[in-house]
């Protein structure tokens, strides 16, 4: 009986110790900045052997557009649920040819307990509500670390959509295996992710630890409901005659 009393006390003590836990973050707001190298993206769009007209257009664009464009977004999360919302930029981003990588078109709700997410995507006028389970991503952890927004983050290299190489930095101090856009699946919050071959990156600029009322983390509702496979089929039909631009834009819209 004495054992039981001590056990109970220990349990209570352990419980109270757990309740404090100042180091672990389970709820808060993160501000992300998406950064695109406009010049390199435009250069890749005109291809390796561009026509003189495309070359002229690219050179004129290079002279008038800044090299990098930044776009802001916020991620609010609490206890394994998160909502990622882009912020409309105050000045328009000079977009060489309507490339989706220079835009923010995703509003994403993620629920790690059910392993599912709902992404509202605007694609050339159509509003889609993509409901599906979180995509399988292959991650390889490394020993490299980097400081992002005051948190020490570990580097993980990953492959998404089977062929897109990404580099992510996550922190195990934030207990939600989520991140900006639809990036997820690491043992902690992704505070920085880059797609080196598409010249785009998302970096957390500010992390605010605060309690977010669960009522604020709700999935978007408007849009025609599809799952990932149905969206891919629709995009394939629409972009059938777009040549090489089709698979490229499809890949970006599926991110």
């Amino acid at each position: 009986m004495k054992t039981i009393l001590i056990t109970l006390t220990c349990l209570i003590l352990t419980g109270s110790l757990m309740a404090q836990n100042p180091q672990i973050v389970t709820s808060g707001t993160i501000t992300f900045e998406k950064r695109v190298n406009l010049h390199t993206v435009a250069k890749q769009e005109i291809g390796t052997n561009p026509s003189p007209l495309s070359q002229q257009m690219y050179e004129a664009y290079k002279k008038s557009a800044p090299q990098f464009a930044t776009m802001q977004s916020t991620l609010i999360f609490n206890n394994n649920k998160s909502l990622f919302t882009p912020i409309e930029p105050t000045t328009p981003i000079p977009n060489f040819s309507g490339n989706p990588i220079n835009k923010q078109f995703n509003t994403v709700y993620t629920d790690m307990t059910t392993s599912s997410n709902i992404a509202q995507k605007e694609i050339y006028g159509d509003l889609f509500l993509v409901k599906d389970s979180i995509r399988k991503m292959t991650w390889r952890l490394t020993d490299e670390t980097q400081d992002v927004a005051g948190y020490t983050c570990r580097r993980a290299n990953g492959l998404i959509l089977d062929s897109v190489y990404v580099v992510a930095f996550y922190t195990d101090k934030i207990w939600m295996s989520g991140g900006p856009e639809s990036f997820a699946g690491l043992p902690g919050m992704i505070l920085k992710v880059a797609i080196p071959h598409e010249n785009v990156s998302w970096t957390a600029t500010k992390v605010t630890v605060e309690n977010i009322p669960p009522a604020k983390i709700v999935p978007p509702k408007k849009g025609s409901v599809v799952n990932n496979k149905q969206l891919i089929d629709k995009l394939k039909v629409a972009m059938k005659n777009w040549g090489s631009v089709g698979p490229y834009e499809m890949k970006i819209y599926l991110l």
Binding site: L38, L53, Q56, M57, E59, A60, Y61, K63, S64, A65, P92, I93, P94, N95, F96, S97, G98, N102
Partner: peptide
């Protein structure tokens, strides 16, 4: 041609 870049980044020759 004269290349003019519009505010939204599109180009017209």
């Amino acid at each position: 041609s004269n290349m003019v870049i519009l505010d939204d980044g599109g180009a017209i020759g």
